[in-house]
Amino acid sequence: MFKKNIGIKISTIILVSLFSLQAFAQAWTIPAELKAKTSYIPFTSSTSKEGEDTYTKNCMSCHGNPGKGNSMKALNPIPPDLAGKVTQQRTDGDLFYIITTGRGVMPSFKDVFPEQERWKLISYIRSFNRQYVQVLSTFNPQKAKLVKFDITYNAVNHLVRVAVKATEKTGMVVLKNDSVDIYAKRYFGRLQFDNGMITDKDGIAYFKFPTDLPGDKAGNVEVIARVTDDNYGEVTYQTRMKIGVPTDKPGLTEQRAIWNVVSKSPIWLVVVFTSGILFLGLFLLYIGFSLWKIRKIGTL
């Protein structure tokens, strides 16, 4: 028992030190085919500008302003200055992978930014590197348009069926063995439900849908499906489905309460206050009348 504990401790120490070493070395293990991935969007000043907007909102709090060396030193590992050598020596594929998957303190932006926007971010990062020459991907983004989604819901077993096909001139092509994720659209982002799935040989994946997800007044939920395919790229599809719980909660200021506006103050308070003021008014009238009578009697 004692020895076993020691063993656990030692292996923990080794693991931890390995991890910190790795963190120190900032070694990302990126699969070779992803390392070689390149953008199909040409990097221009306009894509860089769009990337900058995204950067300012989502990246600057940790990475600081590129080239200024003001990244957040309190984090471990310290987020690199993205204009720096370490970052700029990476391939576009490396950067795309890092942004997409994240690790440790670096969040994954896979569900946050569509592929295009991730590339635009890289466009912005590259704008700090004068030596950089872009290698364009031969991928044709127009192919994404060929992809068709068919999403249905089975209310009995609460399964969402997503079928993905592409309509090539040669006929229908089933997108098999592709990763598919589905989300419910929420006010600030996408809520993923169930796990990511791989399409079967018919290009179909099933997702368990929660029975208690609030929808709009009628129960509608905006469902977003996304498939990632080698030939067709990242394709997203949004549709409105009546699969949520109808939700129509009243505003939080409906009830009469001490804290509400005057028109919604408690009845008893309105009655007491108004009758108090009324009584005071009548009382003052009585006193005024008495004074008037005294004066009148005196003049007689």
Binding site: Y286, S290, L291, I294, R295, I297, G298
Partner: peptide, 24 residues
């Protein structure tokens, strides 16, 4: 002084009103 002449009517009114004020 509201034409005060100290008549009983005036006395009565003023004592009633003063009493009402004192209670209120």
């Amino acid at each position: 002084s509201l034409n005060w002449n100290g008549s009983p009517e005036q006395q009565k009114i003023i004592s009633q009103a003063t009493r009402a004020l004192a209670i209120f």
